[in-house]
Design a protein around this nucleic acid. Structure first.
Lengths: 344, 344
DNA sequence: GCACTTCTTTACAACGTTGAATACAACGAT
DNA sequence: ATCGTTGTATTCAACGTTGTAAAGAAGTGC
């Protein structure tokens, strides 16, 4: 009952032609007599032949598989992104392999080093824990060794190196969100999502935007309003808001560094009988679907995920085709979407 | 600047040994002198050698890659499942390739036919649109042709065939959820998530459970309380609840066939000033994280996702090892988690 | 010293595919 | 007739790896 392996050879024998002719038919080579083609196709069907991708890839040196490396799949932002990337890649005939790094520095290093070398042709990489030094160290490591795998980095351009970048302007976006809260007349705007880890670039940038906004609005900086978190999940947001309320910092608004944090914070606020946006206005970042159905719905920064996915695949495909070109950087548009959590 | 290909051959030359010896070192073969081993390892490092998986797979006839085919990645239930499956597979040294079927019959057919043949060793498959007839047609198609790819099916056992099954008892679970609502004294319990499509097995089974519960609780069946949906997203739940309220069916509870529908329904209720669970109690299915942070938190059926993921990988690994055995069926436990949306 | 075992390393073939080179027609133009 | 040209099909080698068989080295027991 073992699976009989069917190869070009078997098809060729059945059709009475050479192996190469079958290969030609499979690959749509032009110069094949209709008669032969028909015969071969019949044989293919009869044997239910499928080309062996491993062999094809071995021969051609490419696999047609690209990796998408994200921290976690069940963070809705990344799940939504993954769906779009898979769809965009498919249009180009590429298959996407999703790698979860779990936001661990070690696993991100593995990805950057190309540990799936020879299995994938390129990586779309959303680093979270990796510092620019880490990345530089990997890429510059050995001048004699193979050049790094074609890579497209998602996120702010904080990494030097041969990779293309798809950048969301975190600083400006965070500033816009915070200014929006200030424009509502809120004076004690909290920032939820700071991270001590120097490698947490995203957090650093959004915090910078928050700071700029405070300055521009003439609001004082208050350390107690800046709440660190361990990760960017709902639970962290909920805990952070609880700590904030317990500390007596008395915020009247909060800019959360992503939507999950905001949803967690929202839960804590409602649980404790605070009204949103009445007592505390909330803004998030990412525009995940959850925020469109929460009560109240969530004001957020909406990066153009569709555009991120499509351009990431385009950039990567271009780099796989010719790795010689200069690294490119493409700015992804974002916009502030005002909803109920800030009284939209 | 093109990538120089590094193979066993190159390492062998540098280390002054045969290709096979290098291969032995790479594969941890026992009988290698420490001296040789060291020398080879040095060469490997020097050249930054990585084994070529395509070649290895071609040789061994296996790829070490399994596919997880799910309808959509940004349905939180599947995202959570995907994370767990990837983790479980990794422990066994397997890589997971995620395929999105988009719940389209055509794409599900492709998966079942093994269109990634020779690229993957097996599939964990969560069919949504495929009927048992479809599947039977594919599997019985050609007795001469290769046996179907090792497959583990997730969901109720409604498919005959050589695949293993991991079944959640949808009927019982749905019945439990509905009975819970009835036990609260609710008399007009709606069911949100019916689907006309005969292929929508999940919907059919949960509806059957709902019906059983009504009978057991001595409640009358009311067509107007059974609301069909197109898909299982928040938007569908929101629309369904709106239709329900507008129709004057006046429900005092709703069992939603998944948590996303329930969250959508919740949004509509709150938007219209109904209280939950005061006016309408809500129960869902899947126990996604969102439901633990919504306000009110969501009562739901919680299937043991961890167990699903682990056993799916185990079953698949077993079947890949020997495809001769009888198809197995494993029941996955579930439990009712009572939260605020039913006054928990 | 000899046969025997055990350890270490090697040569070779094969996995299924495709690019390059080539053979062989058939054809029109010289 | 001869020469190129074009269309069709084939042969051969190679991609990088590993299983098999076997060769060489080094002991072990008699």
């Amino acid at each position: 009952m073992d699976r009989p392996r069917v190869g070009l050879k078997d098809v060729a024998r059945l059709a009475g032609v050479s192996v190469k002719t079958v290969s030609n038919v499979v690959n749509g080579y032009v110069h094949v007599t209709p008669a032969t083609r028909t015969r071969v196709e019949a044989a293919i069907k009869e044997l239910n032949y499928r080309p062996n991708l491993s062999a094809r890839n071995l021969r051609q040196g490419r696999t047609g598989i690209i990796a998408l490396a994200v921290p976690e799949l069940d963070i809705p932002y990344f799940a939504e992104l993954a769906r779009l990337v898979v769809a965009a890649a498919e249009e180009r005939g590429l298959t996407v392999l999703i790698d979860q790094t779990g936001a661990s520095r070690e696993r991100e290093q593995l990805v950057a080093e190309g540990f799936r070398a020879h299995l994938i042709d390129g990586v779309i990489f959303s680093p979270l824990a990796l510092s620019s030094e880490d990345l530089a160290a990997i890429w510059d490591a050995s001048p004699t060794s193979p050049s790094p795998i074609p890579t497209v980095l998602l996120g702010e351009r904080v990494y030097e190196g041969p990779a293309d970048h798809l950048v969301v302007d975190n600083v400006t976006a965070a500033k816009e969100a915070t200014l929006h809260l200030a424009a509502l007349g809120r004076r004690r705007i909290a920032a939820i999502g700071a991270q001590d880890d120097v490698a947490a670039e995203t957090s650093r940038l959004r915090l910078a935007g928050y700071r700029l906004a405070l300055e521009e609005a003439g609001l004082p900086w208050d350390d107690r309003l800046v709440v660190p978190v361990e990760a960017y999940h709902r639970a962290d947001g909920a805990r952070a808001m609880a700590r904030l309320l317990d500390s007596g910092a008395a915020p009247d608004a909060a800019f959360c560094f992503n939507d999950l944090l905001a949803l967690g914070a929202l839960r804590t606020l409602l649980e404790r009988g605070r009204s949103v946006p009445g007592d505390v206005a909330l803004a998030g970042f990412d525009d995940i679907e959850d925020g469109r159905y929460s009560t109240p719905t969530l004001t957020t920064i909406s990066p153009d995920k569709q555009s991120i996915a499509r351009q990431a695949v385009d950039l990567l495909a271009a780099r796989m085709a010719s790795r010689a070109s200069e690294p490119r950087e493409i700015r992804v548009p974002h916009r502030l979407v005002v909803r109920e959590s800030t009284g939209g």
